[in-house]
Simulated scan of single mutants.
Amino acid sequence: MRTILKFSLVIIALLLVANVNAQEKPATFGVKAGMNLSTITGDATDDVKAKVGFNVGVTLDYTLTSDLYLLTGLELSTKGCKEDVGLSKDATSNLMYLQLPIHLGYKLAVTDATKIVFHAGPYVAYGIGGKTKISESGVEVSVNSFGSNRVKRFDFGVGLGVGAEFGKIGVGLGYDFGLVNIVDVDNVSNKNANAYLTVGYKF
Score class of each variant (00 low, 15 high):
G86F: 00
R150N: 15
V141R: 06
D155S: 08
T39N: 13
A91M: 04
A22T: 06
K107M: 14
S145Y: 05
G53Q: 01
Y196V: 00
R150P: 11
D112Q: 10
Y201P: 00
V31A: 12
T28L: 12
N192P: 01
R150E: 14
I11L: 15
G127N: 10
V31N: 04
H119C: 11
Y123G: 04
N36R: 06
A27Q: 03
G129C: 13
K51I: 05
F146L: 13
L76D: 03
G163F: 04
K191A: 02
G105R: 15
K133I: 04
C81A: 11
E83M: 04
H119G: 06
F177V: 14
G138H: 04
G172C: 01
T45M: 03
N144K: 14
L95Y: 07
D43R: 00
N144T: 05
V20L: 10
V52K: 12
Y196L: 07
G42A: 08
G57K: 09
I134V: 15
K49W: 07
G57Q: 14
G129S: 14
A195M: 12
A33M: 05
A195Q: 09
A13I: 05
T45K: 03
L95F: 11
N187R: 01
N21D: 08
G127P: 06
L100G: 08
L95W: 07
F156S: 11
V139W: 12
A33R: 06
L5E: 05
G167D: 08
L15F: 07
G57Y: 12
S93I: 05
T41G: 07
S8Q: 10
L15W: 09
F146Y: 15
R150K: 15
A44K: 10
L76Q: 10
G174C: 00
S142N: 13
G34M: 03
D84C: 04
D43K: 02
F54R: 06
E136M: 11
Y106I: 08
Q23G: 01
A91Y: 00
G105D: 10
A33W: 07
V185N: 00
F154V: 03
D155P: 05
T72P: 14
V171R: 09
F7D: 02
S189K: 15
D90N: 15
K152N: 15
D61S: 09
F154L: 08
D112H: 00
T65S: 11
Y97M: 08
N144H: 07
A120F: 12
M96Y: 10
K107H: 14
I128Y: 03
D46K: 14
S88I: 13
A44E: 11
D67S: 14
G147C: 13
V141L: 12
G86M: 01
F7V: 13
A27W: 05
V17I: 07
E24M: 10
N94P: 05
N144E: 11
G172S: 10
D186W: 00
T41A: 07
S38C: 02
L98K: 09
A44H: 05
V143A: 00
T198G: 02
N36W: 02
F177S: 03
F29L: 11
L197T: 06
L64H: 05
K168Q: 11
V180S: 02
Y62S: 01
G130S: 04
T28C: 04
T132E: 03
G127M: 04
L197I: 14
Y123H: 12
